[in-house]
């Protein structure tokens, strides 16, 4: 088996890797956005809940949360399928980080602009939707890219719950051909290629939608 063939076998798992990453990141964005929006509600119980949420999901190791969800929940009668376990785990954890990123980005938005929108007769919801959100997303881009990278790098854990992604392919291939060095080198290369490709897409998107005077740094 040549190195090229090894790459090909492993690449069959890349689809799952990308799927897990995309689904987890989407879940994370939704959760993060919801948490960031809730954080604007100045009601004590909500604030406490959000503090607890970020503390727990930023503090718990990915693997521990994954095991709680996949192996733990069934013992109290809740069975979560592998893919959902992975997405839930990474979604909650990246959601907690993204909530902080979004909150910081919201603080960079000039409140006078929101006031101007309201002075023209816009509702608070309109001001949020048309002024706050578009600017907030632009300020969040570097943070979102970091978080995406982080999610991608945690996807190999999916093998522990039996999702046939790259790592799982590598683990079943290694004992067959007894060439772990090459196999894991190939895994590294595939991940790096995925990472670089995604990064290129993001940078291109960011350039395309860049607005003078509105970037995170």
């Amino acid at each position: 088996m040549t190195f090229w063939q090894i790459l090909q076998v492993l690449a069959t798992g890349a689809g799952f890797t990308i799927l897990v990453t995309a689904a987890s990141m989407s879940a994370g964005l939704l959760i993060g956005l919801a948490a960031a929006m809730l954080s604007r509600i100045r009601w004590k119980p909500v604030q406490h809940l959000l503090v607890a949420f970020t503390f727990v999901f930023r503090g718990i190791p990915v693997l521990v949360l994954l095991f709680i969800v996949f192996f733990g929940l069934p013992s109290i009668g809740i069975r979560v399928p592998p893919f959902l376990s992975m997405v839930l785990t990474l979604g909650l954890i990246s959601g907690a980080y993204l909530a902080e990123i979004f909150r910081g980005a919201m603080n960079s938005v000039n409140l006078d602009e929101i006031l101007a929108a309201e002075a023209m007769g816009m509702t608070r919801a309109q001001g949020f939707l048309y002024i706050m959100l578009p600017q907030m997303f632009r300020f969040s881009i570097p943070g979102m890219i970091n978080e995406f990278t982080s999610v991608l790098k945690y996807t190999p854990f999916a093998y522990t719950v039996g999702i046939p992604e790259i790592m799982k392919q590598a683990m079943s291939l290694t004992p067959m051909i007894m060439r772990g060095l090459e196999v894991y080198l190939a895994v590294g290369i595939i991940y790096f290629v995925i990472y670089k490709l995604c990064l290129m897409c993001f940078t291109a998107l960011e350039k395309r939608y860049r607005i003078p005077g509105l970037s995170a740094d």
Binding site: L152, M167, A170, L181, Y184, V187, Y191, L199
Partner: peptide
């Protein structure tokens, strides 16, 4: 930064 830590660990532990 672009590749998972787990891969590096497996590479050394199972490959070397």
């Amino acid at each position: 930064i672009g590749t998972p830590l787990l891969v590096h660990l497996f590479l050394m532990y199972y490959g070397l």
